[in-house]
C-alpha cells in the first residue's frame, strides 16, 4: 500500500521539514535579538530594560508582536501605493532569503550550491532597493533624504564588500560555502585573511544599516530617515529585517572567517571528550560563534558614536577598498607560492 514511499521521497520530505525548521529558528532568533539588544543596552547603560512581561522580560517580544499586528495599517495618501508596500516586503524577504545557503552543520542547511557567495552578494545588492524605494515612495522630504543617503552609502560599501571576501574564495577555490568551511580545517580564515576581515567588518555593519553606519536613519537630523512615513507592521518589517540581517550576516561571518561549525582552539584535542566536542556538537559551536557576533553588533551600537557622512564615505573609498584590493593580491601571491606553481 505504501510502496510509493521511496527513500528518495523521504529524503525530500525531511529536507523540506529541515528548511522550515531553519527558517522558523532564524526568524525567532531575529525576534529575540530585539529583546537581547534592549537588555544588553540597558545593562551597559545601568538600567533594567524590559523585565516585566514573562521571566526576564522574554514575553516582551510576543507582546510587541501582537500589539503591532493590531496597529492601524496606515497608507499615506500622498505615497506611491504599490512601491510603498513593496519596500518593506523586499527588505524583509531578501534578508531572509540570503540565509538559504548558509551551512550550519555538516548535515543542516537549507541548500548547497556552487554560487552561494555570489547569491549573497546579489541579495545584498538588491537590498538597496528596499531602502531606496521606501524613501522615494514615501513622498516626504526626510524619507527622500534618508533613502538617498542610504543608497549612496550602501553602494559605496558594496564595492569592496565582495572584494574583501575574494581572499577567502581564493583560499578555498570555490564560492561554495561548504567548501569554504572545509578549507578552514586547521586554520580559520580570520588569521591568514586578517586584512580581508578588517575590510569585511565595516561592510557587514553597513549592509544591515547598523550603528555606526545608521546615517540613513540618523534621528538627530533626519527624524527616521527612509521609514519616517512608515508605521504599524510595515515599519515593523523594516525593523525585523534589520535583525534578520544581523543574524544572517553573523552566520555568514562565522562561515567565511571563523570555521563554521569547527570546534575552536584545541577543544577537539582534549583527551576523552575531544572527539565528542569536535564531532558531535557542530551546531553548538556554530550557534555560539554566531551569538558572539550578534552580541558584537549590539556592543558596537552601545560603544560607538555616529560618524559624519563624509567620514563614512571616505572610509569606504579611500581605506577599505584599497585594503580589500591589497588583500586580494597578497592572498593570490601566497596561495600560488605555497602551491609551488
Amino acid at each position: 500500500m505504501f510502496s510509493w514511499i521511496t527513500p528518495d521521497l523521504i529524503a525530500i520530505v525531511w529536507g523540506m521539514v529541515k528548511a522550515i525548521i531553519i527558517l522558523l529558528g532564524m526568524v525567532l532568533t531575529a525576534a529575540y535579538m530585539i529583546w537581547l539588544e534592549r537588555r544588553l543596552l540597558a545593562l551597559w547603560q545601568d538600567r533594567y530594560g524590559p523585565n516585566r512581561v514573562g521571566p526576564l522580560g522574554l514575553g516582551q517580544v510576543i507582546a510587541d508582536m501582537i500589539k503591532i499586528f493590531f496597529k492601524e495599517d496606515w497608507m499615506p495618501p500622498f505615497a506611491d501605493k504599490f512601491t510603498f508596500v513593496l519596500a518593506p516586503f523586499l527588505a524583509m524577504s531578501l534578508m531572509m532569503l540570503a540565509f538559504v545557503f548558509i551551512p550550519m552543520t555538516p548535515n543542516w542547511g537549507v541548500s548547497n550550491t556552487n554560487m552561494a557567495l555570489l547569491f549573497f552578494l546579489a541579495i545584498a545588492g538588491l537590498a538597496v532597493y528596499a531602502v531606496m524605494l521606501g524613501g522615494w515612495a514615501s513622498n516626504s522630504k526626510y524619507s527622500l533624504l534618508g533613502g538617498l543617503r542610504s543608497t549612496a552609502q550602501t553602494i559605496s560599501y558594496e564595492v569592496f564588500m565582495g572584494l574583501a571576501l575574494m581572499g577567502v574564495v581564493i583560499q578555498a577555490g570555490s564560492f561554495n560555502l561548504r567548501d569554504i568551511v572545509a578549507a578552514q580545517d586547521g586554520l580559520w580564515n580570520v588569521f591568514p585573511q586578517i586584512l580581508g576581515f578588517i575590510a569585511w567588518v565595516p561592510a557587514a555593519l553597513a549592509v544591515v544599516h547598523r550603528t555606526p553606519f545608521d546615517l540613513p536613519e540618523a534621528e538627530s537630523e533626519l527624524v527616521q530617515g527612509y521609514h519616517t512615513e512608515y508605521s504599524g507592521m510595515k515599519f515593523g518589517m523594516f525593523m525585523v529585517s534589520e535583525y534578520v540581517g544581523i543574524v544572517m550576516v553573523s552566520g555568514l561571518t562565522v562561515t567565511l572567517f571563523f570555521g563554521g561549525w569547527d570546534a575552536p582552539l584545541w577543544f577537539d584535542r582534549i583527551p576523552g571528550i575531544g572527539a565528542f566536542l569536535g564531532e558531535q556538537i557542530p551546531f553548538v559551536w556554530f550557534a555560539a560563534k554566531t551569538f558572539i557576533f550578534m552580541a558584537g553588533y549590539i556592543l558596537v551600537r552601545a560603544a560607538l558614536p555616529r560618524p559624519r557622512y563624509d567620514q563614512i564615505m571616505s572610509a569606504a573609498w579611500l581605506w577599505c577598498l584599497p585594503i580589500a584590493l591589497i588583500n586580494l593580491l597578497i592572498t593570490g601571491a601566497v596561495v600560488l607560492w605555497r602551491a609551488g606553481a
Binding site: D8, A11, I12, M16, K18, A19, S93, V110, S111, T113
Partner: peptide
C-alpha cells in the same frame, strides 16, 4: 532531488 524542493519550499515560505 531534495535540494531543489527544500530551497523551493524555503523561498515560498519566506
Amino acid at each position: 532531488g531534495p535540494e531543489f524542493w527544500s530551497t523551493a519550499l524555503y523561498v515560498v515560505a519566506v
